[in-house]
Write a protein that binds this DNA or RNA. Structure first.
Lengths: 342, 342
DNA sequence: CTGAAAGCGCTTACAG
DNA sequence: CTGAAAGCGCTTACAG
């Protein structure tokens, strides 16, 4: 917003409405130009009450002539809503965020909401400035839902299942997706299948691991604890490091299911460095279908999420909340993308 | 922000200040609890005027007890500034944005500004809602700088040199960096060096191309037009497509300089598919040092930008503008990262 | 150092 | 269908 020139307070007579076209005219200027009250201008702007057609036209002409746009601060101060939705993205570079956000935007826009993004710093609470500014939030991050003084900011978790409380969420079924990935490996004849997972304070990591365990159990296969490797983080390097030990086992696995593509690629690099071929010597399946999954050689077999739709549904759930509803969680379908790595 | 319950207008008597701890108390409630005027509360909150130590303590206690936080809309409406900075990121998934934004945040935060992100849709103008909301913008996108009714929103271009007008910017010297990349190839004995560039409505693309041409000219080498390939976009696929023809030339190049890592990797894939080895048969150098440059095999030789510092300097330039200054453009040093591809 | 009061630019009962 | 006026929650000359 512009800085106002320091104007002397003017209490004697009201200032004449400024009609400088293109400057930030006020609603009073529009009203004066159209020969109506500010109330009427407000009503045509917001279509909140019927206005005589001819009057409306005069107002619209005045708005156009002055290039008037409402001051969002004044509007929000009186109306009690900002029509702004906060989308929280994780601080790690997430190749998905852009597409998910597009999905969000596709539905918010046609409902008169704009979106604003914030990067979550770690998993701490959100910068306090945001929640006073927006009507609700869609979080793609592992952020704490803030309890701002007893009041709850409407909140939707996108792609990160919230078990805590009744926060609505939209997600794929991570456990089932992991089962599908492991089942695929089983179908190809693998029996010694290792799990490459990440530190499990993420719900998705726990669920993907559970999927692995369930699939193995259903196949009547024991899970050798030595086959379960927990990476320190989710970087390529973490994947390489955690996968390294697998090869020196007395009975090394013939396949690895990694809970993230980054880990999977790190593992492949480690295997190669050790002289193993992928998938001939050891098959690798990832999770996420990051852009790199297609470009990397060998192309990575992995699980894909419906990104745009995840964003769109998250927006729907939030809008439903803003309208006073209690939306149900939504589970969206995933897909196994078969390439060359496994 | 919360929806207010529909309260009947109350004109007879002022409502008693609500002291419900944790609810959104107003400044009046704080004033009442501390036994001072709202003006005094405002003064301690903003440290805008000296306040008696004992009074200040009472106010601070009241603020703490009520969990008071100023309503940002009311504050902005009166003060004329939002203390919000808009960072515009490109709509293509940009692996850099997170790190640049961290740089921005590191300096805005300690100056009392918060940041808000927006994704630029193509190269159209920004959604009008943003510029009324924020005090200034840092754009990492190829967005048009909007001229909102004659008034200019303070603006800094980050990593995209603006030749237009006097918009301050921070960037590396793309032309020099490209020269360095090509010179590296020349030093390794290459003479037939092709250029893989992108459609040139981007300043950086033009400048990198100019660097290529200058380096070749200085080496006394002609640029064969057949060696200059313009990719349709900057995807991997675009790189593969544009690079493909190079191999069937009567005298194919021995090296390629690509103006983006994504193009470089696409080219490498195309070369491999055609049975060529990189770098033995053909060397490839990219630009950007995307995360993948390190992970891809072969590791990509490329130019790295100082991301965090780019963001930090952009923030400094914007703050300088907000303080009424006219900051000079800033050029930051780049680095050639030598890996295996060239 | 402190307070009473105007004013920022809107929206919305209330009364015609 | 329309207007006068209060009120949203702050900040800031102005006057002590």
């Amino acid at each position: 917003m512009p800085r106002k020139p320091p104007s002397p307070s003017n209490r004697a007579s009201p200032p004449p409405p400024q009609e400088a076209p293109g400057s930030n005219a006020s609603i009073a200027a529009v009203a004066a130009l159209a020969g109506v009250s500010t109330a009427t201008v407000s009503r045509v702007l917001n279509q909140s009450k019927p206005v005589n057609a001819e009057t409306r036209e005069r107002v619209e002409a005045a708005v156009a002539q002055l290039g008037y746009r409402a001051n969002p601060f004044a509007r929000s101060l009186t109306s009690g809503e900002s029509r702004l939705i906060l989308v929280v993205v994780p601080d790690v570079a997430n190749p998905f965020f852009a597409e998910i956000v597009q999905g969000v935007e596709s539905v918010t826009r046609r409902n008169g909401y704009s979106i604003v993004l914030a990067i979550a710093a770690g998993d701490g609470p959100l910068d306090a400035v945001y929640d006073r500014l927006t009507d609700g939030v869609i979080s793609m991050a592992h952020t704490q839902r803030p309890r701002t003084g007893g009041r709850d900011l409407p909140w939707v978790a996108c792609s990160e299942v919230m078990t805590e409380g009744s926060t609505p969420y939209v997600s794929i079924d991570h456990r089932q997706a992991a089962m599908d990935a492991v089942q695929y490996l089983l179908n190809r004849g693998h029996r010694r299948i290792a799990l490459l997972t990440a530190e499990e304070d993420y719900a998705w990591a726990r669920q993907r691991r559970a999927g692995y365990e369930t699939a193995m159990a259903r196949a009547g296969l024991p899970v050798d604890p030595a086959y379960v490797r927990v990476a320190r983080g989710t970087d390529y390097g973490d994947g390489s490091e955690a996968a390294g030990g697998l090869l020196t086992l007395p009975e090394p696995p013939t396949a690895v299911f990694a809970v993230a593509d980054t880990l999977a690629i790190g593992a492949i690099k480690a295997f190669r460095r050790a002289g193993r071929r992928v998938p001939e010597d050891i098959a690798v399946v990832g999770f996420d279908n990051v852009p790199l999954a297609q470009v990397f050689e060998p192309g990575l077999t992995t699980i894909a999420q419906p990104l745009r739709e995840l964003g769109a549904v998250a927006a729907e759930l939030l809008l439903e909340q803003l309208a006073g509803g209690k939306p149900e969680p939504r589970i969206l379908p995933h897909a196994l993308v078969v390439r060359d790595s496994g």
